[in-house]
Structure formats: C-alpha cells, structure tokens
Simulated assay, not measured.
Amino acid sequence: MNEYGSFRFLHLGSDERAQPCLRPRARRRELQWYGGWSPPRPRWAAAWRSPVRRAAPARRPPSPYRPSSSATPTPPTTASPPLNHEDSPQVFCFQAKENYPAVATRRLADKGVTLDVQSDVSCGGALVRHFWEKQELPFNLGEVPPQQDALKPDTQLVVGSLGGNTVGFNRILKQCSAKLRGDEGVLLPGTPVDEDVPAATCGEFFTSGDGKQWLDRQFEEVGWELEELLDRIGYFSPDAKRVLAGYPRLVPADTAKCRTAAPGQTELPFADIPQDALPVLDQIQKRLDDVMKKAVADAEGGADFVDLYAHTGGNTACDGADRGIGGLLEPSLVKLGDTTLPWYLHPNEKGRDIQATQVADKVKAILSR
C-alpha cells in the first residue's frame, strides 16, 4: 500500500566473506531489512549475530509458496533522492539512501544500540511472495533476487513490512478514482478491480457483491503468504527474532479534514476519491493490519508487531502541515526523467521519521528483554 503495497524489504547483514571482521565485538548487532512498499512499506529488516551459533532446529523447508496475487506492483514513490544503486538498473527499486531503516539505525545508535548494517534489499513494488521469489524490475530491466537470500543461519533479528501490494492497494485506488483511471494514473501500475463499475460507487463496491468477494480473496492470500514469510525466516535463521511493521494511517477518523487541500497544494489529499469511500479505505487498511497482527500472533516461536496505524492518527494524508503521508496526486521528490511522480499516498519525510522512531523503539525493547 504504501511501502504501501509492498513492504519494503531491507536486509541489514554481511555476506559470509565479511563475517571474520565482526568477531572481535561479542555482541555487535548486525541488521537486515526487508520489504516492499506501495504506500510504502516501506519496511525494514534487521539482524545481528551472536558469537555462539546454535544448531538449526530439525524442520522441513516451507512449501514453495501459496497462490500468488495478480496485482501489479505499485511504483516506488516513497523514496526521496538521492537513491541507492544509481549506476545500475536496480535504481528502479527507488531505494532512498535516507530511508526509514537508515534513520532508525542512527536513532538506535543515539540510544547506545549499535547496528552493523549488512545490506538493504528493499525494492519498490515488492509483493509478499518476492520474499522467496525473484522480483522483476520495471521496464524489463532485469530482476532482483528473493529477499530471503539475505538471511543467514546466525541472523538474530529480522524486521520488515509487506502486504499492501499483495492486497492490491493500487488497484483499490484506481477503482475509487476516475483521475487515476486517466492520464493522471499512468505512472501507477495496475487496473481497477472492475473497470465497468464507476469510481463514484467504489465505497459500495468494496462492501458488497463482487468487490467484497475480491477483497476477501486478497486478504486470505496475504494471510497465507505472511505466515509463509515468517515461517521461512524461522527456517533459514532459526535464532532470529521476527518483527513485522504495519502501515501508517492514511485516512483520519474525522474525514471532513479531507475536504481541504494541504498547504501549498491545489488537489485534495485523496483527489477525486468520493468522500463516502474514505471510511471504506480506512476499514481496508485496518483489516490489513489485523491480518498482519494475526500472522505475528500465530507465528511458531513468537514474533512482534509494530503498530504504526495506532501511532499516526494525527499524521494522515489529511492532516495538513502535520501530514506524514503525501497526497494521492501531490508531487513527490522523485522524478523519472522530467516527470515528477506523485506520492500516491506514500510516507513523506515526516512520515519516514515517525516510522523510524516507532521501529527503533520496538527494536530497542526487543534487544533489551
């Protein structure tokens, strides 16, 4: 959705050749970040290694994967320049150098928690299944390996966020916005769930009939695949503490605030999405959070959840100068050539900093217990 649509995957860890230089420090944390975004996840995974390596439990590998979503990955519009991998096709992952994992790592360092960042494998538009499958880059420019390839047997902490892209948040937005179905949505991949149903009726569409059935199937798939993801982390990194980060809130409790454009903007935060559809979008986001929480609660061996939704009610897309979410058609800081990409409801810099604080606090608490 906003990583999100995908959670953004960041893997903070080193490859096997780099391990010897880590041995002198007994408990230096090494992080791994993973995820995809499309309102943004982004998200983050971290890992640290302990000096003593326990044997992995005798477990069978997880099944290859459950049925995958047909949703098109959403464009990575949460990034702010400069970007990583600027000299390779992987730049189209739109991975910002100053993304929230980087900010969270610094904030943890300020609190006395040193994280040795091994790698960042986050990539815009990632679906949950791209944790174990290759992800194709836009414009047929190649592919990136499965995010799970960054995991090591002695990884100790993994943090990330995925799910929004698999739900198909970009398709939901196009179902609800006539503008996104036209020229203003050409940079947002995907199609409406049902092009024959007018955008003006999307609230009703997703609460009854075919639209509701489609959502039910999407959420069932997300639940299966998040369980698979957490199981795979446990299999490949048996000692790892697993942390799944939710998504920041998009729609405020008082949707009347969404009738006013943000300072300096001419478009409303949700552009032409009907006012009566905004509570429906909020319910969809809440449902995604519930699915993520359930996957965490059901994870064998335990896992933790970062509830960003609960901490961002005053920083939604409709909160004016306090917004942590860029408006649907508000220009972002990312350009493709001479074209500026809209935020498409991804976190802006304020939102990034809020995410970083919440994730850093959760990680510190986990490492302290």
Rank of each mutant, 00 (worst) to 15 (best):
L83E: 03
G185C: 02
T339K: 00
K152Q: 09
K294H: 10
R23F: 11
A45G: 14
E195A: 10
R323W: 10
Q135G: 04
R106I: 05
A26Y: 12
P198D: 01
L151Y: 08
P248T: 03
E300H: 11
R41E: 10
P192S: 07
Y344S: 11
L215P: 05
G337C: 10
S208Q: 14
V291K: 04
G142Q: 14
R41F: 13
A297F: 03
P73C: 13
E228G: 02
A245V: 09
S332V: 08
T74E: 02
T74Y: 01
Q213V: 05
A200V: 11
A18C: 13
G112P: 10
V359L: 08
T155A: 02
V296Q: 00
P274I: 13
T155G: 01
A56F: 08
D110Y: 08
I366H: 04
L226Y: 03
P252H: 05
G182I: 07
S88E: 15
E30Q: 09
W44Y: 06
Q358T: 00
G124H: 04
V52R: 01
E221H: 09
S122E: 13
L281F: 00
A199K: 03
C93R: 14
Y34C: 03
D194Y: 02
Q95D: 15
A295T: 05
P64W: 02
T166A: 05
H311C: 08
P252A: 13
P57S: 10
S237R: 01
A104S: 06
D183C: 04
P39G: 14
G112A: 07
I325P: 11
S88N: 12
H346I: 11
D338H: 09
R29H: 10
L151G: 06
G203Q: 10
R49N: 15
T191W: 09
R171A: 10
D289P: 01
A317Y: 04
E86C: 05
P24T: 13
G13H: 00
I273M: 01
V197K: 14
I366C: 02
Y344D: 06
A256Q: 15
N165T: 00
A150C: 08
A277I: 06
R232A: 07
L329M: 12
E16G: 13
Q148Y: 13
A365V: 06
